[in-house]
C-alpha cells in the first residue's frame, strides 16, 4: 500500500463520509425531537437523485404523483380533525398548504420538464418536489402516534420505508439512473486527481452543517427544536407546539436527504432502493456518536466513510460486514454505561 493509494482512499472515504455525516445529523435531529428512528431517511436520497436524472432525460418524475397523493391524504386527515373540533376556519389554510402548494409545484414541474431548463433550476424543482414529502409524511404516519413508544414509532418507520420503496419501484423502475455532474472539471492536487463533484459534496455538506448550527443557535425555531429535544413536556408547557416541531424536524430531514441525493447522483448509480443502505450507514455514524451529540455523530459518520473506503481495498467482499460490525462494540459500550438510566425509567 503506497502513499498515493492511501490518499485516494482517504479522498473517497471523506466524500462518502460527508454524505453520511449529513444523514447522521438528520437522523439525530429527528430522533431527538420526535423519538422516531427515521428509517425512511434514505428514501429522500433515492427520490431526489432519481427525480433529477429523470428530469434531465426529459421525463416527468413520478415524485409529483406521490406529492399530490400524499398532500391529498394529509389534507383529508387535517380536514377530518378540523370538522371534529368544529374549527372550520382552519380549512383555507389546510387546503392551501396540502393541496394548492403541491398542485402548484406539480404544474411547474410539468411545464418545466419539456423545456429542459438549466441544471440549477432543475435541482430547485427537485427540492420543491421532495422536501414537502417530509412534513406530509410526518402528518400522515407519525403525528397521530406522536406520543407512542420508541418501538411503535420504529415499526411505523419500517412500514413507511416499505411503502415509499414500493412507490419508488413503481415510479422509477428497477434499473439504476445517474445524473449529469455539476461540472466535469478535475483538479490535480499533488498526486491526487480530485473531481469537482467530490469537492461539491464536501463543500455543500460543510455549508449545510454550518447552516444547521446557525439555525439551532440563532433562530427561534432552532431553539424551539432544541427545547423539544431536551424535554418535550416542558417545551409544550412553555407554548412550543409539538406537532409543528415534528413537522419542522421532518422538513429538515427531507431537505438534507434530498440535498444528499442530488449531490451523489452524478457520482454513482442510484437505484430505487439505494437510499436505504446509504441512510443505514448514516445511522451507524449517528450511533457511533452515541445518538446524542451532533459533532460526535458527524465524526462517527466520517469514520464510517473512511472505514468503508479502506476495507473496500483490503477485503472488498467483507466491506459491509466490517462497517456494520462497528456498531456492536459501540452498542455494548453504550448499554454498559446507561444501565442505571434504564433502571430509573422502570
Amino acid at each position: 500500500m503506497t502513499a498515493d493509494i492511501v490518499a485516494w482512499l482517504a479522498q473517497d472515504g471523506i466524500t462518502n463520509g460527508a454524505i453520511y455525516a449529513l444523514l447522521a445529523l438528520a437522523l439525530l435531529l429527528v430522533f431527538a425531537v420526535t423519538r422516531v428512528i427515521f428509517v425512511p431517511q434514505g428514501e429522500f436520497i433515492a427520490y431526489a437523485a432519481l427525480s433529477l436524472a429523470l428530469m434531465e432525460s426529459g421525463r416527468v418524475p413520478g415524485t409529483v404523483y406521490i406529492l399530490l397523493g400524499g398532500g391529498a391524504l394529509a389534507a383529508a386527515m387535517e380536514i377530518a380533525r378540523a370538522v371534529r373540533e368544529h374549527a372550520l376556519s382552519r380549512l383555507p389554510r389546510i387546503l392551501a398548504l396540502y393541496v394548492l402548494l403541491p398542485v402548484v409545484i406539480a404544474a411547474i414541474v410539468w411545464w418545466a420538464v419539456p423545456r429542459k431548463l438549466d441544471q440549477w433550476l432543475q435541482i430547485l424543482l427537485v427540492l420543491a418536489m421532495v422536501v414537502p414529502l417530509g412534513p406530509i409524511m410526518y402528518r400522515i404516519a407519525y403525528q397521530p402516534l406522536a406520543s407512542a413508544s420508541v418501538l411503535v414509532l420504529f415499526i411505523v418507520s419500517m412500514a413507511v420505508h416499505y411503502v415509499l420503496m414500493g412507490l419508488s419501484l413503481v415510479f422509477f423502475g428497477g434499473e439504476g439512473l445517474r445524473s449529469r455532474p455539476f461540472s466535469d472539471a478535475h483538479f490535480k492536487v499533488g498526486m491526487l486527481d480530485v473531481s469537482a463533484q467530490s469537492l461539491w459534496v464536501v463543500f455543500a455538506s460543510m455549508v449545510l452543517i454550518g447552516a444547521l448550527w446557525l439555525l439551532f443557535e440563532r433562530s427561534i425555531y432552532g431553539k424551539a427544536l432544541r427545547a423539544t429535544a431536551v424535554n418535550r413536556i416542558g417545551a409544550r408547557l412553555v407554548g412550543i407546539p409539538a406537532n409543528l416541531m415534528g413537522q419542522l424536524s421532518f422538513l429538515l430531514a427531507s431537505f438534507i436527504g434530498a440535498v444528499s441525493g442530488i449531490l451523489i447522483s452524478p457520482i454513482t448509480t442510484i437505484y430505487y432502493d439505494t437510499g436505504f443502505i446509504i441512510g443505514l450507514k448514516g445511522f451507524i455514524g449517528a450511533i457511533l456518536g452515541g445518538m446524542a451529540s451532533y459533532p460526535l455523530a458527524a465524526a462517527g459518520a466520517l469514520a464510517v466513510g473512511l472505514l468503508e473506503s479502506f476495507s473496500s481495498f483490503w477485503a472488498s467482499a467483507y466491506k459491509e460486514s466490517i462497517v456494520f460490525t462497528l456498531i456492536i462494540p459501540v452498542l455494548a459500550w453504550l448499554s454498559l454505561r446507561s444501565r442505571h438510566v434504564e433502571e430509573e425509567d422502570e
Partner: peptide, 15 residues
C-alpha cells in the same frame, strides 16, 4: 467484490 447499491468502488479499483 462490490454490492449493487455501493456508492463507490474506489478501493477495489485501486487494487
Amino acid at each position: 467484490r462490490y454490492a449493487r447499491p455501493d456508492t463507490s468502488v474506489t478501493g477495489q479499483v485501486l487494487k
